[in-house]
Nucleic acid binder design. Sequence first.
DNA 1: ACGCTAGTGACACCGAGTGCCACCGGCAAG
DNA 2: CTTGCCGGTGGCACTCGGTGTCACTAGCGT
Lengths: 204, 204
Amino acid sequence: MSETTVVADPRGETRLRIERAALDLFTSEGFDEVTTDAVADAAGISRRTFFRYFATKADAVWGDFTAHVNRLEVLLAAAGDHQPVLTSICRAYVEVNDYATDDLPMLRQRLRLIFTEPALQAHSQVRYAAVDRAVADHVARRTGASAGALVPRLVATSTRAAATTAFEVWLADGRLPLAWALHDAFDELAAGFPSLRPARPAVR
Amino acid sequence: MSETTVVADPRGETRLRIERAALDLFTSEGFDEVTTDAVADAAGISRRTFFRYFATKADAVWGDFTAHVNRLEVLLAAAGDHQPVLTSICRAYVEVNDYATDDLPMLRQRLRLIFTEPALQAHSQVRYAAVDRAVADHVARRTGASAGALVPRLVATSTRAAATTAFEVWLADGRLPLAWALHDAFDELAAGFPSLRPARPAVR
DNA sequence: ACGCTAGTGACACCGAGTGCCACCGGCAAG
DNA sequence: CTTGCCGGTGGCACTCGGTGTCACTAGCGT
């Protein structure tokens, strides 16, 4: 958050070292089996210092997520009003998750942990809440409704559900690009799940 | 879960006593400010015994949630194939949450805590995952797809998003019945969010 | 040489959760 | 009545995540 981006960036460097150590240890041993002492040792720092970089053991898995949310907010705010709301959200999601191919392995590692380990899965809800708030604000701005009303909230949570589901499928499959998975999920959602009615004209 | 419903039910009785003590203390003092020692004291038991009834401090807030999920599964399995998939899910959600008016205050208390306290919010994701699995299985059964495919997962997570959003709105408002809020959310979701396009024919 | 500051490590502390053992109640068999 | 079993319980010690405090060091300007 501070302007600590001078030259050698000694702070960001050790932060990254901790992150990698944590990711590797959690992946090989399991999140619960690794103590913060072990992570600190592997990163060459003390346990106390670990908690100066990450407020929580779980936080080491979620790189700089607040920056992620901030970028999403900027993208949503910059989206023009000429496109449908859902489209603007989808595009923002796609763009904010447009990683360089070199970063994909680490992203996979993060997501695999988050989706697999119950403790991290639990932690994720708090992170998602920040995303939902951003999207709900965007929808409220576009529709004139209150951000606490049903539709903005619902759009926020269900688009986020679409995004995380796309991530899961992308992670499990490994073939299709992430952007495609996101578009598939959003298309399905925006059209009211057309693949649920194969040839049934909804009797009643 | 067990058949512990004999006559006096001494076990279920103390369990309920713990639950009430926890709910009241958490509501008045805040979840993080109340120690398990305090809850145990208020319930007239020892800390060790508290953890024999609830695996986690947070679990005391979620009554018997596995029974809730089981009922949902039964309702989904019993739903006929004549109605659209989303309708069957909506009806199951409405029916499984059809509480007696006497139970509503306690339900509100639970939900307010769950939605408000970050620690409980985090815990909720693990509970929701069980619900999602049940719904995804139902969708997979109805559509013939794999339960791990995109559409069943997406339907599960977004319908659950609709349900929780409905709960939040119901909790905040207090006027409209829970069933109405659920129907509103599901209608919006099933129709692809019609209230997002007031008079705009989606230019491209 | 002086002080200031940022980053760090050591230590003590709290609270959630767990394993272990000892205790006490009832209850059936002898 | 005594013996032994058994489910529920309490006490205790321990691990581990997380926090507050303090002392130490390295750099850096004066």
